[in-house]
Simulated scan of single mutants.
Amino acid sequence: MGYQIITNCPVCNEVLKITKLQCTHCHTTIENEFELSKFATLSQEQLYFIEVFLKSRGNIKEVEKELGVSYPTVRGKLNEVVSALGFADKKSDLDDKNVIDMLDKGEISLDEALKTIKKN
């Protein structure tokens, strides 16, 4: 069994490049500069979140149930993954008024509301 690929240098923390590929069957070796997928740079937790999100077909309510977390937590994890993949950060679609409305309806706790407002 192989090791999980590392994407950053353990000495200087710069991005590593893959320069060698080898076939385990015939031992053919190819050397060049190969690029990693953006997904290779995600943490195990982020990859698991993506798996759950895709399995749920983007249904946040189902993601909440599977992970046992609240709506703002799912949104936060999604925003974290989007940012980690290098996509432009958009202003959170949960503005302060929406958060207060959700709190008023009992959809989120006071702690979750405060955390979400602080992130905005």
Rank of each mutant, 00 (worst) to 15 (best):
M1G: 15
Q4C: 11
I5R: 07
I5L: 14
I5K: 07
I6W: 05
C9W: 03
P10C: 12
P10G: 09
V11I: 14
V11R: 12
V11S: 13
N13H: 01
E14H: 11
V15H: 01
L16I: 06
L16K: 03
K17W: 02
T19Y: 13
T19E: 11
T19K: 15
T19A: 13
K20F: 00
L21D: 01
C23V: 04
H25Y: 14
T28H: 11
T28M: 14
T29V: 15
I30H: 12
I30F: 10
N32T: 10
N32D: 08
N32K: 14
E35V: 14
E35I: 14
E35L: 15
L36Y: 02
L36S: 03
S37Y: 09
K38R: 06
F39I: 11
L42H: 05
S43I: 12
Q44W: 02
Q44M: 06
Q44H: 03
E45Y: 02
Q46G: 04
Q46Y: 05
Q46R: 00
Q46E: 03
L47V: 08
L47H: 09
F49P: 10
F49G: 11
I50Q: 07
E51F: 15
E51V: 10
V52L: 01
L54D: 01
K55W: 00
S56G: 06
I60M: 12
K61S: 03
K61Y: 08
E62R: 12
V63P: 04
E64S: 14
E66W: 10
E66P: 15
E66I: 14
L67H: 10
L67T: 13
L67R: 08
S70C: 03
T73N: 07
V74E: 00
R75P: 07
R75D: 00
G76H: 00
K77L: 10
E80A: 02
E80T: 09
E80C: 04
E80G: 06
E80S: 12
V81P: 01
V82L: 02
V82Y: 02
A84M: 02
L85V: 00
L85H: 08
L85F: 01
L85T: 04
G86L: 01
F87K: 05
D89T: 08
D89W: 04
D89L: 05
K90M: 09
K91C: 08
K91E: 10
K91M: 08
K91D: 06
S92R: 05
L94F: 11
D95G: 02
N98S: 11
V99P: 06
M102I: 12
D104I: 05
D104L: 04
K105R: 14
G106L: 13
G106K: 10
G106V: 09
G106Y: 11
I108S: 03
I108W: 06
S109N: 12
S109D: 03
L110A: 15
D111F: 14
E112C: 15
E112R: 13
L114C: 13
L114Y: 03
K115S: 08
I117N: 02
I117D: 00
I117L: 10
I117R: 10
K118Y: 13
K119A: 15
N120V: 13
